[in-house]
Nucleic acid binder design. Structure first.
Ligand SMILES: [Zn+2]
Length: 672
DNA sequence: GCAAGGTC
């Protein structure tokens, strides 16, 4: 009789793939408590492959108050109402554990996976009988290699690093969150739910900084010339590229002088656009937002659904590379049976003559490849699900295709040797991959008969007044991109954390999905920057990464790192605690709990020696400075007229608008 | 109750 072993995977899909890879396909499927597991025999032994459902244990604490430095690990199905379903997964694991001789942790090979496996084996009292399989893909050969070269014990350094990550996040997040709530409660006597964290707080601060600039934006007029030329019966709109005008008068003077333009230079260039790489979660979320207006979280939910239906591969990946050994030809042939894709796949196979070399992106992932369709044909599904499936599939098909070719013509126009205008025409001359992925704008190239030295007639020319623009607002998709670029959060958490900022009332959506800060969001951002500079910056994540690295390489121990963090945190909490009253007061103002000493415009606290709060006071200063710029540009304009113009402009920042309106209304009252 | 991180 051989021995029995329990192989623990991180998720059910992985468990099945591992069982298949190690058994040459001869597996038995079992069900217990509505959870699947698999068994097979190899080298005379019996193996049961079971699955966790992500993290099964988490940190919690009895201590209700603050600060809190004591905590312990508990099953998630007990401490988190939304994790009740995990109980049945653990029941199966515990049940089977009774008949096995040892454990094999086969969770994803990263710090989180190692913690997931460790916590389960620890709960089973099996740490001395546990081994670790290390693989970074679920391709049969990789899993087999991991099995043949199994680690004789658990990967302790990585486990320790993962535990450190968990503890640090908990300590920083919970303590600062509680300090804020307590400060508020002591001023107002009311409860409030406030939060701070290594990922959410820098993200909130980023939006708040962008929005501060936008809300304080005073549009300043400037002048440019719009000209239209007529060449062989075709009209072309030119862009002014000459020296900027300081005043309206100088623009008008130049305009009156221009009669004809000489084509000074013409450049014709060919630009190629390589096929896009297959999606990772971030690029899929951005495209779904751009094309369909889906929020990143919605796209993620749908992609997870498609993954559970076995229609697409694992979606929570950052990789832009398909697996090396993926049988693309057989996937494409199966997809070809679908009426939507039949003709384009026939065309692709003809175009590539069956030589399939997928485009790749730079980004990688420690445990998962890029997202691709599995070749399982979709049944009936709702519209939005189909949209995401279709995006993934077309992107996959397109990545085997050829470059798209664009032509670009740039022409420069001068008067007396001074280049004043530019014309740029571009368009596609060879469709390439855009034929398969039709979600990109593609004008066809229309050649223009422009030759250097020719003199062209101006059909229309006039001075145009424009206004300076504020920076673009964030939306959920480009905020997610910012998080990716700053490398904070993970594929599974970024969209969720953005939703937390909205749900807690720190950010709100307006217009077509733009994000702005609420008063509470602005105040929290100010509090973080003033009292908790560490948690306001993405550098805290870098610091955590250094710790994790040091622990994996045995340069530091978890205990040291945690003690160091507690020491720093104690000091930070103590210093901020000394300002608890003022933190509480600004929070109370921001939630409209105080009526005295209020700004004349909003609910924030009034500054000393001002009728306005700090923000409206800044806005007042910007408004006064803007008046000087307006006078320079327009010659001369009255203060009142200036304010009225400012109120009319869409580009005006909201605090500027508030103050301008407020001044005007006061003048009206005083005039009566 | 508060984090961030897995996964259903
Ligand atoms: Zn105000």
């Amino acid at each position: 009789m051989g021995e029995k072993f329990l192989i623990i995977a991180e998720k059910p899909k992985a468990a099945l793939r591992i069982a298949l890879a190690l058994s040459e396909g001869r597996i038995t499927k079992h069900r217990m408590c509505k959870v699947s597991y698999w068994s097979f025999n190899a080298d005379g032994n019996t193996y049961f492959v079971v699955s966790a459902a992500g993290h099964m244990f988490d940190i919690t604490s009895e201590v209700k108050g603050f600060p809190v430095f004591e905590y312990r690990w508990e099953p998630l199905w007990i401490i988190d109402r939304n994790s009740a379903f995990k109980r049945k997964f653990f029941k199966v694991i515990r049940n089977l554990s009774k008949k096995v001789h040892g454990y094999i942790v086969a969770c994803d090979y990263d710090v989180e996976g190692s913690v997931i496996g460790y916590k389960i084996v620890e709960a089973l009292n099996g740490l001395d009988r546990a081994r670790r399989m290390i693989f970074s893909s679920l391709v049969r050969e990789d899993v087999r290699r991991a099995f043949d070269n199994i680690m004789p014990s658990l990967d302790w350094n990585i486990i320790e690093a993962g535990l450190t990550r968990c503890e640090l996040d908990w300590l920083w997040g919970i303590n600062i969150s509680r300090l804020l709530a307590k400060a508020f409660r002591e001023v107002t006597g009311e409860k409030i739910l406030l939060s701070a964290g290594r990922v959410q707080s820098p993200t909130l601060v980023e939006v708040a900084c962008r929005e501060e600039i936008r809300k304080l934006h005073v549009p300043i007029p400037y002048f440019t010339i719009r000209a239209e030329v007529l060449v062989k019966d075709k009209k072309y709109e030119l862009t002014y590229v000459g020296r900027p005008f300081k005043t309206k008068k100088s623009a008008e003077e130049l305009t009156s002088k221009i009669r004809k333009l000489r084509i000074a230079e013409v450049h014709l260039s060919t630009v190629t656009r390589s096929p896009p790489p297959p999606f990772n979660l971030g690029s899929l979320q951005r495209e779904a937002y751009r094309i369909y207006g889906f929020s990143p979280l919605r796209t993620q939910r749908i992609a997870e659904d498609l993954y559970l239906d076995a229609l697409i591969s694992y979606p929570r990946t950052s990789s832009q590379k398909l697996p090396d050994h993926l049988d693309n030809l057989s996937i494409l042939k199966r997809l070809k049976e679908h009426q939507e894709y039949g003709s384009i796949i026939s065309r692709l196979l003809a175009e590539t003559k069956g030589v399939l070399r997928p485009a790749e992106g730079r980004r990688e992932d420690p445990a998962h490849p890029a997202i691709y369709p599995t070749g399982v044909l979709p049944q009936e599904m709702n519209n939005s699900k189909w949209k995401i499936y279709d995006l993934v599939t077309r992107r996959y098909i397109a990545c085997f295709s050829k470059k798209a070719v664009l032509k670009r013509l740039s022409a420069f126009f001068d008067v007396e040797r001074e280049v004043l205008f530019k014309l740029e025409i571009s368009g596609i001359v060879h469709e390439g991959w855009t034929r398969y992925y039709p979600f990109v704008k593609c004008r066809t190239y229309e050649p223009a008969d422009l030759r250097e030295g020719d003199v062209v007639e101006i059909s229309r020319v006039h001075v145009e007044m424009k206004y300076t623009n504020p920076p673009r607002p964030y939306n959920k998709a480009n905020l997610l991109k910012w998080m990716e670029e700053k490398q904070v959060g993970t594929e599974s958490t970024r969209a969720r954390i953005i939703e937390v900022l909205v749900k807690r009332g720190y950010l709100v959506e307006w217009g077509r999905g733009n994000l702005t800060t609420t008063i509470l969001g602005e105040i929290l951002s100010e509090i973080f920057k003033t009292y908790f500079p560490q948690i306001s910056s993405t550098d805290l994540t870098r610091k955590f990464e250094q710790y994790i690295d040091a622990i994996i390489n045995e340069r530091k121990r978890r205990h040291e790192v945690i003690e160091e963090a507690k020491k720093l945190l104690s000091k930070v909490l103590k210093d901020a605690g000394e300002h608890s009253k003022s933190i509480g007061i600004v929070l109370a103002y921001s939630t409209n709990h105080v009526n005295a000493e209020k700004c004349e415009i909003c609910n924030r606290r009034r500054l000393k020696n001002s009728i306005y709060c700090a923000y409206h006071n800044k806005a007042y200063t910007s408004l006064v400075n803007g008046y000087t710029d307006w006078n320079k540009a327009l010659g001369s304009i009255g203060w009142r007229e200036y304010l009225m113009e400012i109120c009319k402009l869409k580009l005006t920042g909201s605090w500027i608008l508030d103050v301008a309106k407020h001044i005007l209304s006061r003048e009206n009252i005083m005039g009566e």
